[in-house]
Amino acid sequence: MVLVHPEKQNPPTHILDTVIGRIGQIVLGKERQARLSLACLLARGHLLIEDLPGVGKTTLAHVLAKVLGLQFKRIQFTADLLPADILGVSIYQPDNKHFVFHPGPLFAQLVLADEINRATPKTQSALLEAMEERQVTTDGLTHKLPEPFFVIATQNPHHLIGTFPLPESQLDRFLMRIEMGYPDRAAERALLKGRDRRELVESLQPVISADKLNGLQQLVARVHVAEPLLDYVQNLLDSTRRTGEFAEGLSPRAGLSLVAAARAWALLAGRDMVLPEDVQAVAPSVIGHRLRPANGGRTVNIARLLESVPIP
């Protein structure tokens, strides 16, 4: 990094660089994905990973939990999974004649919701509602989810048989959607030569604690966003609403997400202010799943959108 001045190098960034480095030791050749998912977490957002099975989605989630010292639970979504299976149930205790709530697997700091689109809409909704509210309500009682609370959901885009694709309104609950992609040749070679990933994950030591993470999240909220940058974000939002290239323009919530993610990205780069480049770096992951092309196609070209909006 040629351009970062020594006085801007804030101490937390050292830790974050260490975190990225640790993840990189296990998830090979995926530094960008690692950074994005870390930024997502720092911005208190949930992450959706969409890709083929076996490209390291689960490993990434697991490594993140380990490195950040988070309590980790994995829920494999299936068509017969019921809301109670993830939220928990109240069971009658004959001893003291009371119902006692038994928390489900959702009560963890980092939850991996694997193959979320295999579950029925009902179960999906229960998860997404909990993600939004950060609490679970059953039998009139509200149970707070742990803090921090972070969901990484995965889905297999091509595996359409027996799936229930997430509707747009629910996709919106995820701050980012990223794709893993195949590893490059060198990374794959290292992977093939190396030890079993699961063993490696188990042997990982946490770099920071949950408290420390909370402090970092508060730092993110304090990263400065200047007026010209907000101009830029608004121009971007405007452009999606006017070009006619998209079925519908971005919502104000999408704008908020974009700014939050850009803040986290700036902090990861060790800066106390957001630059347009930060917005550009997170934009494909933040707005990609919130836009649909107007002509009924499947993919939107975020790079072209970014190139069409000058930086004010």
Binding site: V2, L275, Q280, E307, V309, P310
Partner: peptide, 26 residues
């Protein structure tokens, strides 16, 4: 500089092309 190119990204690109100017560009 392209209109959509941020100052930071442009500086990195320019510094790669003209390493003699990297310091002042930065």
């Amino acid at each position: 500089r392209a209109p959509y190119e941020g100052a930071h990204a442009f500086a990195e690109r320019a510094a790669r092309k003209r390493s003699d100017l990297a310091a002042s560009i930065s």
